[in-house]
């Protein structure tokens, strides 16, 4: 990567420079193809923004202009002040933060055991963690729902928070174990010789060195809970006060034709922060996801 950028910096002569043997025509075609792909990628998103700006009387129009005539922020105002949109966001945020904190702690300690210790059942445990990844979500919903009814956990956050945290644990353990494995154990051994206990060495040496992977796992736990619709729908039942944003948004979309503008405005407000966070961390995210596999 760094090599590639160095090369491109050295040869900035022409705008469409690419590769040694590419003709100008080929370069033009490549850029045209990429432009077209980008257009397909972002057009549906631009449409959401466009619809969210439409005034109520032209909500249903066959106009394709990105900035509609008489653009207005009315839909945003309605969502922010007249609808429980902020409550949905607050509920989601509470659940998500609790989930992510619990999930990261569970995964960080378990991954340490898998990475630094040999113990009976270790290989079986790792394969089991992989196996859980192929269980369809819909398969777990049936027993969890019926058990939750019997334990009277439906309509509360208790079951939901714990269920989310545990769902993300297997994948998080794999990511963190892969990352711990790349950190030489010598550092911890040196600390042990200087008088640290094993857990102190874990806390003071390994964890700070694993910050990027911990950040990825936090993000992964966060998005699992933040974007979930299915489990929340089943576990929260019809508790109006407890709705999370995906449930709320789906209700708006249910009355699609009348509230398309409000649905779009809320989508924009939910999606923009998530997208910025994602784009900002994406490079990190990829290296963290692929690190374990490259190491083999």
């Amino acid at each position: 990567m760094t090599q590639a950028t160095a090369v491109s910096k050295k040869r900035k002569r022409s705008f469409f420079y690419s590769g040694r043997e590419d003709s100008p025509f080929k370069r033009l075609m490549i850029h045209a193809a990429l432009w077209f792909a980008c257009l397909i990628a972002i057009y549906p998103i631009l449409r959401i923004i466009s619809v969210s700006l439409r005034p109520g009387n032209t909500l249903l129009s066959t106009d394709l202009a990105l900035i509609p005539d008489g653009a207005t922020l009315e839909s945003y105002r309605i969502m922010l002040f007249d609808k429980p949109f902020l409550s949905w966001l607050w509920n989601s945020l509470m659940i998500t933060v609790a989930t992510a904190v619990i999930g990261v702690i569970l995964a960080a300690t378990s991954a340490y055991a898998f990475s630094r210790h040999k113990f009976p059942g270790r290989a079986v445990g790792l394969v089991f963690l992989l196996t859980t990844q192929i269980i369809p979500a819909a398969m777990m919903i049936v027993p969890i729902y019926i058990l939750a009814i019997q334990l009277e956990l439906v309509g509360t956050y208790r079951g939901l928070v714990i269920a989310y945290a545990v769902t993300a644990v297997p994948f998080s353990i794999w990511i963190l174990k892969g990352y711990y494995d790349t950190i030489p154990i010598d550092l911890e051994e040196a600390a042990r010789i200087d008088g640290c206990s094993e857990l102190e060495a874990f806390w003071r040496i390994l964890l700070p060195l694993s910050t990027p992977a911990l950040a990825i796992v936090f993000l992964f736990n966060f998005t699992t809970a933040w974007n979930d619709y299915l489990l929340a729908r089943v576990m929260l039942g019809s508790q109006e006060n407890l709705l999370t944003w995906p449930l709320g948004l789906q209700r708006l979309q249910g009355q699609f034709l009348t509230q398309w503008g409000q649905f779009s405005a809320s989508s924009v407000m939910v999606a923009i922060p998530v997208m910025l966070l994602f784009l900002y961390t994406s490079k990190w995210l990829i290296s963290g996801l692929t690190l374990g596999s490259v190491k083999g």
């Binding site: 549906p44 619809v51 995906p246 398309w260 998530v274 997208m275 994602f278 784009l279 994406s282």
Partner: peptide
């Protein structure tokens, strides 16, 4: 730009497509 479909929360993307 090409990464954007992945970055949008899935529920939003799918509901918008449905529309």
């Amino acid at each position: 730009f090409l990464i954007i479909p992945w970055a949008v929360p899935q529920v939003i993307a799918v509901l918008a497509w449905r529309g």
